[in-house]
């Protein structure tokens, strides 16, 4: 906990009130400052609360698969440089890199690594290996494996369903549960001989995603599975 002398500046009642709202200099003193604050402070406190609420409502941002692929390629490049020092010019790494470099060279690990899976993609790939246990889509598109592919490619070809309101209305019309997380990927598919749109949705739980396929026109849902986590 900081002492008052450690505050940064502190001029102006607005800043003092905001700092008190943040619990400075300590909870007890902050409560006293707020209680003794000038008329109009209630409006400021409400504004700060509204601001916090808006910040907290910023949606989660899962790492795009393309970024994960870039990371994997970058780690591969480091491994290759470690295995063959001197091939890359301008190597400015510090001496504490050397133990890792020696170990990698000794073990000869220079093969390209598979796609470095984000939590969501890894969950779907796991589901794709097993496949859905039930449902009419077994003979056509496996929603889990299709979802893994669109997630891996970053495909988002869902037409008007990009619009959150249209997406919500479509799910509601098909009798599906509402989306609990962002739309991550999707594309048109055929499931059990019927056209639909595969939607890969976040769930708000790390590593868990939902693959849902509303039929064309949204009158029903052809598949709906949640996996991972």
């Amino acid at each position: 906990m900081s002492r008052p002398g450690e505050w940064e500046g502190g001029s102006g009642w607005l800043t003092r009130l905001a700092e008190a709202e943040a619990g400075l200099p300590d909870e007890e003193a902050a409560a006293r400052v707020i209680a003794a604050s000038e008329p109009g402070s209630g409006r400021v406190l409400a504004a700060l609360a509204a601001t916090r609420a808006e910040l907290a409502a910023v949606p989660p941002a899962p790492m795009p698969t393309a970024v994960a692929a870039r990371l994997a390629a970058g780690f591969d490049a480091v491994d290759r440089a470690d295995a063959a020092p001197g091939l890359m010019s301008g190597d400015s790494r510090r001496s504490d890199d050397f133990p890792l470099r020696r170990l990698r060279r000794r073990s000869g690990q220079v093969r390209r690594r598979p796609l470095l899976l984000t939590a969501a993609a890894a969950a779907l790939v796991a589901a794709a290996v097993v496949g859905p246990s039930t449902g009419p889509d077994r003979e056509a598109v496996d929603p889990a494996s299709a979802a893994a592919r669109v997630l891996a490619k970053g495909t988002l070809e869902v037409g008007g369903l990009r619009d959150p309101a249209a997406l919500a209305a479509c799910l509601a019309r098909g009798g599906a549960a509402p989306a609990r997380g962002p739309l991550l990927a999707g594309r048109p598919v055929v499931v059990g001989g019927r056209r639909g749109t595969l939607l890969v949705l976040g769930t708000g739980v790390l590593g868990r995603v939902r693959a849902v396929v509303p039929a064309e026109g949204c009158e029903t849902v052809l598949a709906d599975l949640t996996t991972g986590g």
């Binding site: 900081s2 940064e8 800043t15 905001a18 700092e19 943040a22 619990g23 400075l24």
Partner: peptide, 9 residues
């Protein structure tokens, strides 16, 4: 806390 408070204002 102080930097957050100023940022929120």
């Amino acid at each position: 806390k102080s930097r957050c408070a100023r940022g929120r204002v």
